[in-house]
Amino acid sequence: MSSMLRRSLPWLLLLAVLLGAGALLVRYTRWEEKRVPLPPQGEAETDRHYQLRHWLAKQGVTLQTPSELGTLPPVTDTLVLTSPLWDVRQSREQDLKRWVEAGGHLVLFPNTDEAMLKLNPLGIEETSEWQLQREQRKAEAKARAAASGHAAPPEKSDEDEDDEDDEEDTAPATPASGPALPRVPPPPKCDWTAKDAGAQPFFAELPIYQLCRSPSTVFKSRDLPAWGVRDELGWRALRLPLGRGELTLSAWYPNLDNPDLMKHDHAPLLAAMLKLRPGRQVWLMGSASLPTLPSWLWQQAAPVLLLA
């Protein structure tokens, strides 16, 4: 009996250790369920605009994504230009302007507006968020100096302010007492709010949009836009009449092939920006396929090449 006990003792000790480790694991760990998105399959795997296309279809709108834009869409549709490289010919700029004046709706983003249409004749100025914030800081410093009766501090150059901003960003954090904890990247901030404004707000029941990450561009408009989105710094998107059509400029760029498009108030803002109406079409035009440099030179200057 004693020999059997001696043979069983190591196994009993091992069982006790395993039970103790299991008890510690259960006590000091927490089990949570986390949803992991499945990779796209079928049509969603080949169509990068699958989600946008189906969302627009639910609104009664058809999405067209041509690789080449030989002719402009009907003037009853909306044309969205997402890249300045879709066409670099000067003649296309005039074609676009005539198309809008005939009744089309053109949507542009900051990386395309200067390349396609000149904004100054429309009474629109484009500035950056940091420049407006710097002007506000200077105005507040002058107001404090005037209130205290002291002379205002000398204005700093752009390089000095940029250096100070960099120093603030790279300044080491004050070490806290206790053991150092691993740094966890902060979640994306979705606390930027913008107001649906202008002469004709698009959503009467949604006056405020809750969005992620404010854009860095601010528009200044000479006239009150027909529709727009603004915050305390100014207009972030606006729509102005141009002939019988309309031109929409947006500093907020929605990632049209990103699932985050359906989060928060991104989708309602996109609907207002595109001015969605059932039965219409949205033409989404990115970068057209550009010819290689040798073929482009041959098309443009074949006689010169032959002489050379």
Rank of each mutant, 00 (worst) to 15 (best):
V61R: 00
H105E: 00
S91I: 10
R92K: 14
V75M: 09
G70Y: 14
Q51R: 05
S67T: 11
T82H: 03
S67D: 12
H49V: 08
L79F: 03
G60C: 01
K58E: 15
T71F: 13
V61N: 00
L108E: 00
L56F: 01
Q94R: 14
H54L: 08
W99C: 02
H105N: 03
T65K: 06
L106F: 06
T71Y: 11
V80P: 01
S91M: 07
L106I: 09
R92A: 10
T71N: 11
A57P: 02
L69C: 04
V80L: 01
D95T: 15
P66E: 04
T71H: 13
Q94D: 12
Y50K: 01
L106A: 06
Q59M: 09
Q64D: 09
P66R: 05
T65W: 06
L56R: 00
S83M: 03
R98T: 12
P84R: 07
L63E: 01
A102E: 10
K58D: 15
T65L: 08
T46P: 09
V107Q: 00
L108P: 04
Q90F: 11
K58G: 13
P74H: 02
H54W: 08
D47M: 08
L56K: 00
L85H: 13
T76Y: 03
D47R: 04
Q94T: 14
L52R: 00
R98L: 10
L72I: 09
H105D: 00
L52P: 01
W99V: 02
D47V: 11
R92L: 10
P73V: 05
T76S: 10
A57V: 08
P66D: 04
H105I: 01
R98S: 10
G104V: 03
S91E: 13
P73N: 05
T71W: 12
R89G: 13
L79A: 05
R89N: 11
G104C: 06
V75Y: 04
S67G: 12
S91W: 10
D95G: 15
W55M: 12
T62Q: 09
A102P: 03
S83E: 05
L69S: 05
P74V: 03
T71E: 11
L52T: 03
R98V: 11
D47H: 07
Q64S: 13
P84G: 05
L79S: 05
R98P: 05
H105F: 03
L96K: 09
P73S: 05
V61C: 02
T62K: 07
S91A: 12
L56Q: 01
R92H: 13
V80Y: 00
G70H: 14
S83D: 07
L79T: 04
W99M: 02
